[in-house]
Design a protein around this nucleic acid. Structure first.
Lengths: 139, 139
DNA sequence: AGAAATTTGTCCGTATGTATC
DNA sequence: AGATACATACGGACAAATTTC
């Protein structure tokens, strides 16, 4: 078969189809996707094309792949919501989420210090920098 | 020739090398990277491998590719990620929570880029810096 | 414990489509 | 119109991690 890619490229079409299956629950969260070879048979596409489609979903954090095992449909994660600020730089104490707690090797909920700097260009916020440090550095 | 990939895969090594050139300024921001065929010749790798390396940098927003023109070094993350001690920096895309959405004046859930740098002293995490930027800063 | 099968990871080479200069 | 360069797609081969027998 030649390689006509009019309109949407095939790998994107395949990615859309797989995304739809995950979103609709046809592939429940945590479940394994069909193997790459199974997908090549189903979509009549080469393995490279299939892997390109899966790479899209991986970038979107829709799936997670493990070497030798397969590709899982990954459950969505919750984003930590902290209140916003308008000043240039402010400090406050916040409870460490699981991510920060894991990084600092402390219990979840441990107080850490956050410094938030909001940088604007022509009045438009272009960058937000948040620096976290433990209350007792080194301990 | 067989395909021995001991240690780091070649595309990752190539991506590291190109990232270093951009970070160090050897490839100035906004400049065109060498063409894929030039990189093919330089690294003695196939185009697929070169493109895989470039895809990594594209995911990190270190470069931007324009169809038919070439791949540019993006001034987006021009920095300073150099440091003496032990630190790891990674990039990823996250959905903006209410706080970030308010700061950037975008809808909640809008994709923003997060760069997270974890600094360690003697193996102990002492600081976590998270920088958020919108996907399109003007570029 | 070990071997085989399964599955994803990496790499190559080639061909062709599409956009830009 | 031609040249250049990136995008898409195919096929094959071998490596590495996991599971299964």
């Amino acid at each position: 078969m030649p390689t006509p890619h009019y309109g949407q490229p095939r790998y994107r079409v395949i990615a859309d189809e797989l995304r739809e299956r995950i979103s609709s629950g046809a592939i429940p969260p945590g479940a394994l996707l069909p193997t790459e070879s199974a997908l090549t048979a189903e979509f009549r596409a080469s393995r490279g094309t299939i892997r390109q489609a899966i790479a899209i979903l991986r970038d979107e954090h829709m799936v997670a792949t493990e070497h030798g095992r397969g590709t899982y449909a990954s459950p969505f994660w919750l984003n930590t919501s902290l209140e916003g600020g308008e000043s240039e730089t402010r400090h406050r104490q916040v409870a460490a989420g699981p991510d920060l707690a894991a990084l600092f090797a402390v219990d979840v909920g441990t107080t850490v210090v956050e410094r938030e700097t909001v940088r604007r260009m022509h009045g438009v916020v272009c960058e937000v920098v948040r620096t976290y440090r433990p209350l007792r550095p080194g301990q």
